[in-house]
Simulated assay, not measured.
Amino acid sequence: MPAKVSPGEYGVMVASYAELLELRDDPRSAFLNARLDPLISTGRVDRGGLHVFVPMLENGYRDAVGERSFRCYLWFLESGKNVRSCVLIDVPESGLSALRRLGQGALEKVVLNLLGELPIVTLS
Rank of each mutant, 00 (worst) to 15 (best):
A15L: 15
A18P: 01
P7D: 10
M13F: 13
E19R: 12
Y17P: 13
L20P: 03
Y10W: 14
A15Q: 11
N33H: 14
Y10P: 00
Y17I: 14
P2D: 03
A3F: 05
L20K: 07
L36W: 10
R28T: 01
P38Q: 10
V12T: 10
D37H: 09
V5W: 00
D25W: 03
E22I: 10
N33A: 15
R28I: 00
A15E: 12
L21D: 03
L36N: 03
D25P: 01
E19M: 04
A18Y: 06
L21G: 11
L32N: 01
L23E: 00
M13H: 12
L32I: 02
P27T: 02
S16C: 13
L20D: 04
L32K: 01
L23F: 01
P7I: 07
L36Y: 06
V14F: 08
D26P: 07
G11N: 09
M1A: 11
E22W: 00
N33T: 14
P2I: 07
P38V: 08
Y10M: 01
S6Q: 05
D25F: 06
L21H: 04
R28L: 09
Y17D: 13
R24S: 11
Y17T: 09
A15P: 11
A18T: 12
V12Q: 05
R35V: 13
G8H: 10
L20A: 05
R24G: 06
K4Q: 10
G11W: 12
A30C: 08
F31Q: 14
P27D: 02
S16F: 10
M1D: 13
L36R: 03
V14I: 15
S16T: 15
D25S: 12
G8R: 13
E22H: 04
Y17F: 15
M13Q: 12
P27Q: 02
D26M: 05
R35H: 05
L36C: 10
S29N: 07
Y10F: 14
G8D: 15
L36Q: 06
G8Y: 09
P2Q: 09
A3W: 08
K4S: 10
S29H: 01
L32T: 01
D25Q: 05
S29F: 04
N33Q: 07
A30P: 04
G11L: 07
M1Y: 00
P27S: 14
A34D: 08
S29G: 04
V14W: 05
R24M: 14
A3R: 09
D37G: 04
L32S: 00
V12P: 01
P27K: 02
L23I: 12
S29R: 04
V5D: 00
L32P: 00
V12R: 14
D25T: 01
S6E: 06
D26T: 14
R35C: 11
G11Y: 03
D26F: 02
N33K: 15
L32F: 00
P27M: 03
M1H: 09
N33M: 06
A30V: 05
L36E: 02
E9Y: 04
E19L: 07
D37R: 02
V12L: 15
D25N: 15
P7M: 01
R35W: 02
P7V: 09
E9S: 15
Y17L: 10
M13Y: 11
M1C: 03
M1K: 10
S16W: 03
E22K: 09
G8A: 15
L20F: 06
